[in-house]
Computed example of a mutant assay.
Amino acid sequence: MHGPALSGWLLMVLCGVAGGYCLSRARRETGEERRAARAEAVMGFGMAAMAVPAVLFTPPAWAGAGYAALFGTAALRALWFLRSGGRHPQQHLHHLHHLVGSLAMVYMAVVMAPGADGGGHAGHGAAASAGGVPLLTGVLLVYYAFYVLVSAGRLIPVTAASGAAGVAGSGGARPELTPACRLTMGIAMFAMLLTL
């Protein structure tokens, strides 16, 4: 990622915490929810790794290809589950979102790779020239801006309506944390795309 080191640190921490929460959620859930939590954990940890400031760690030259392979595999997985369909339209939309997110991560990994027009991963602290395809970056920014606004809108009624009774009735689990985690990763993805 290009841009100030502080934003890299904040993104790294936020995405790492979101990935950790999703991983703990995967242990508790079953079936479709477990698959979704695993995919979100991979996305969170991958985003955290890509956001590490160059001041802390300069990734090896092959890191871009590694990220592209990881998220390419995640995209194929999301495509497989999207193709096989889900019982609910919400599951279908969630697989579609994972597909878009994974492909966006592949795109950023390719753009940030050494030798790419964007100046590579090593250009974190310096003012780098704009990388990637502006139209594609713009479309992804619009998608994530819309996703963040919709997710935030859904989060407000959940916290207001669930109250203490919803938390106590679910064995101590906090149902509003899952949408908050997804919102956090959507904001982080938007911020990462801005730095291209």
Score class of each variant (00 low, 15 high):
Pro4Thr: 03
Pro4Ala: 05
Leu6Pro: 02
Ser7Thr: 05
Gly8Tyr: 12
Leu10Lys: 06
Met12Asn: 08
Met12Ser: 11
Gly20Leu: 10
Gly20Phe: 02
Gly20Gln: 07
Tyr21Leu: 09
Arg25Ser: 12
Arg27Tyr: 12
Glu32Gly: 04
Arg35Ile: 02
Ala36Phe: 05
Ala37Arg: 00
Ala37Ile: 07
Ala41Arg: 01
Phe45Pro: 03
Pro53Asn: 00
Ala54Glu: 10
Ala54Phe: 07
Thr58Asp: 11
Pro59Phe: 10
Pro59Leu: 04
Pro59Cys: 04
Pro60His: 07
Gly64Lys: 13
Gly72Thr: 06
Ala75Ser: 02
Ala78Thr: 04
Leu79Trp: 15
Leu79Val: 01
Leu79Ala: 08
His88Trp: 08
His95Glu: 07
His98Ala: 01
Met105Thr: 03
Val106Glu: 04
Val111Asn: 01
Met112Ser: 08
Pro114Leu: 11
Gly115Cys: 14
Gly119Thr: 05
His121Tyr: 15
Gly125Thr: 07
Gly125Ile: 09
Ala128Phe: 03
Ala130Ile: 11
Ala130Arg: 14
Gly132Cys: 05
Gly132Pro: 06
Thr137Trp: 06
Gly138Tyr: 14
Leu141Met: 14
Val142Phe: 07
Val142Arg: 12
Tyr143Leu: 10
Tyr144Trp: 09
Phe146Trp: 15
Leu149Met: 15
Leu149Gln: 12
Leu149Ile: 14
Arg154Pro: 02
Arg154Asn: 12
Leu155Glu: 09
Leu155Lys: 14
Ile156Tyr: 15
Pro157His: 14
Pro157Ser: 07
Val158Lys: 14
Val158Ala: 14
Ala160Lys: 15
Ala161Gly: 04
Ala161Tyr: 14
Gly163Ala: 03
Ala165Asp: 10
Val167Glu: 02
Val167Asn: 02
Val167Pro: 01
Gly169Gln: 02
Arg174His: 12
Glu176Tyr: 12
Arg182Gly: 05
Thr184Ala: 12
Ala188Pro: 08
Met189Ser: 09
Met192Pro: 08
Leu194Arg: 15
